[in-house]
């Protein structure tokens, strides 16, 4: 069956076929087909993780995992959106945590169920080595967990696919927070700047800005020095 023409392709959304123009992102293609996103769309720039999409290409045995706003729709895609992952997040007070080597395991004990199947990594639209950071977390390496998971946008596809029911992205967020609070190097210039702000060094300047008109603001914005 010839499903595409020179200018159009055929995609399938929730089982129904749609003829859409070539060259659109999956998200735009679906909107073109008449779908309206009330959930599952956010920044439209690949940062918010709301538009996680699962698809299977005709003739491919694999499921593929992408962000709808970042991926071009192709002919023969069978698509489904996963705007929400039912993965509970553990509550904790960062300042009261004891950041010992076991802390991630205590809050997310199911990481000990990891069988190293690597399905999470294969599901990650951000190309993160998800299994590796779960393994790092299991052995108590918080810095490594934080570093490997840095590009995570919390789309939740890893947790949807995991046969061990791990909540990877919440656990990794906790690791990054612990790293930031307890382990990252202190930057001296930040401390200095905060002290300056507290002393009121910049108050005069801020007040001047507040009093400016819109056109004055636009003028100084356009003339700003870009590093």
């Amino acid at each position: 069956m010839n499903t595409s023409s020179e200018n159009t392709i055929r995609i399938y959304v929730m089982g129904s076929a749609y003829e859409v123009p070539r060259g659109l992102t999956i998200m735009s293609a679906m909107e073109h087909a008449g779908w309206r996103f009330t959930r599952g769309a956010g920044c439209r720039s690949g940062f918010c993780g709301a538009c996680s999409t699962v698809y299977r290409q005709e003739g491919d045995y694999r499921l593929r995992f992408v962000l709808a706003c970042q991926t071009e729709a192709e002919d023969g895609m069978y698509l489904v959106q996963l705007p929400f992952t039912p993965a509970p997040r553990v509550s904790y007070t960062l300042a009261e945590l004891n950041p010992d080597e076991n802390v991630l395991l205590q809050h997310y004990p199911e990481i000990a169920r990891c069988v190293s199947c690597n399905t999470c990594t294969k599901a990650c639209p951000q190309d993160i080595e998800v299994m590796d950071y779960i393994q790092a977390a299991l052995r108590g390496d918080i810095a490594q967990t934080a570093s490997l998971s840095f590009d995570c946008i919390q789309c939740g596809l890893c947790s949807m696919r995991c046969p061990a029911d791990i909540k990877h992205y919440h656990m990794a967020q906790m690791a990054r927070r612990i790293y930031g609070r307890y382990m990252s190097p202190v930057t001296a210039h930040l401390e200095e700047r905060i002290a300056e702000i507290e002393k009121g060094v910049y108050e005069e300047e801020v007040e001047a800005l507040v009093k400016m008109t819109r056109s004055e603001l636009e003028e100084i914005y356009a003339a700003r020095v870009v590093e």
């Binding site: 990891c114 069988v115 190293s116 199947c117 299994m131 590796d132 393994q135 046969p163």
Partner: peptide, 25 residues
């Protein structure tokens, strides 16, 4: 380099390859 948890206990069923993955990796 890049070792993963072995699983600590060997899986004893003949058809359960999933729990051999960590070791083989």
């Amino acid at each position: 380099e890049r070792w993963t948890c072995c699983g600590t206990v060997y899986s004893l069923t003949d058809d359960d390859l999933m729990h051999q993955l960590a070791s083989v990796r």
